[in-house]
Design a protein around this nucleic acid. Structure first.
Lengths: 239, 239
DNA sequence: CGAGGCGTTGAATGGCCTCAACGATGGTGG
DNA sequence: CCACCATCGTTGAGGCCATTCAACGCCTCG
């Protein structure tokens, strides 16, 4: 586990894209053998520990990232200094799409959990995409997915009472790969982060979570690991 | 002014894209002469009156639209039946980007003012884009713009007190082409629509606007046309 | 062991929502 | 032409809910 002075927490090695375990869900899913031959720059793979920053808003966007495991929050700062989480990036999501347009990063990207990412030059994606319609379509689909996520974030997590928002957030986590959706279990984020996602104070978030626990909607199995009562939470979520 | 039974309010004619007055800001800005020769389907031009629906969420997305003048709201319905406006589309904005991916429309698109739009088949854009890198880049830029707008909508219009949100909304309108930004004048939307944009009830919106008027931050010049005190509103908006 | 971070809880305040009423406006039909 | 109605903006009263400020226990880490 090597400490570095750069944005990275630990270098995990060079990626072998041809044999990537996420090969069919990842941005490069449509690449053929001859495309891979054009990838000359090495693709680095990192592991970020919780709280570590992948990139800052305003940084020049030279790289794009694929999340291999874990989760990152995308943060936007408000004029008054407070922060709001506008999206999450989970397994197989792409971070830094804006880099392909030569723009600076629009958010701070910070790891919420232990997170593995692959880093590749935006320039490379631009070149590959110039004559690869499959990659191009994949890129558009990624943008559209992000846009849909942003809209849902607004309507689901920034609307309604605190109870509803927390319930919707919890439900969202179990079906977003952030959690173990098999047995409806979920490792919760810190109350401050949860609050920043749903636009509510830390205290209110804590109160609401505590209330859910008292009502049995949330049962702690392992420390900081909760089993959710999906049906009841869903009832709260919708009105 | 012909009434029709379709989604359109009035057919205004066939567009002449080569000589479009928005030619250099529009999606097709990068098209060359030989590209235009490939446009066989006619591109229709409509005028929508306020309240008219351009398309509904869930409709099969066969067409995309460019807003030539006026403004449309993009509405998403909540599980409990209420509605939330997630974005505005103004002059030179593209509506229905998702259609290019073969997806159904994600929102209801409804005119807020008298609005002129051009309608063109999504299929056409897909074909043209297949071998036109400029159009491709333009498409990606549109998506990115929409995404940035969505993020700003969340952080600016769904965060903070009602006073702040209304102030930010007003400031946004003057610098978004919806209004006359020369002399800081602005035609306000209905209170219900404003409320749906900032996630606040109609009454609270009305109260806040009325209060701003009493304080002289908003002065009615022509009926339903207001001159804004930008500096003071900005002070309210930020903190 | 002390310090700091985090989750929780309490008490008080205030802001927004809810329900309700009323005036102004504009369109419709008698 | 005018009475009528629907829509819209406004305002009031009351209550609830989230915020604010504060305190406390628990845990990890130095």
């Amino acid at each position: 586990m090597v400490k570095t002075v750069t944005l990275r927490d630990a270098w995990s090695g060079e990626a072998d894209c041809r044999n990537c375990s996420l090969r069919d869900t990842v941005l490069f899913a449509g690449l053929a053998e001859r495309d891979f031959e054009r990838i000359h720059d090495p693709i680095d793979q990192f592991t970020l520990r919780p709280g570590k920053t992948l990139y800052h808003a305003g940084d020049s966007g030279d790289f794009m990232f694929t999340v291999r495991s874990g989760a990152c929050k995308l943060i936007q700062s408000l004029p008054d200094g407070s922060q709001r989480i506008v999206r999450l990036a989970c397994r197989s999501d792409v971070l830094g799409l804006e880099a392909i347009l030569g723009e600076r990063y629009q958010h701070d990207a910070v790891a919420l959990q232990v997170t593995e990412v692959c880093r590749f030059p935006a320039r490379m994606v631009l070149d590959l995409g110039a004559d690869n319609p499959v990659l191009h379509r994949e890129l558009m689909a990624r943008w559209q997915r992000a846009l849909t996520a942003a809209d849902a974030w607004l309507t689901e997590l920034s609307t309604g009472s605190a109870r509803q928002r927390v319930a919707r957030l919890l439900l969202r986590l179990v079906r977003s790969g952030v959690c173990d959706q098999e047995n409806s279990e979920c490792h919760l984020f810190g109350r401050e982060d949860m609050g920043a996602m749903i636009g509510v104070t830390t205290e209110t978030t804590s109160r609401t979570v505590a209330e859910f626990r008292r009502q049995g909607l949330l049962v702690e199995t392992v420390p900081n690991r909760f089993r959710l009562d999906i049906p009841k939470l869903r009832r709260i979520a919708e009105e």
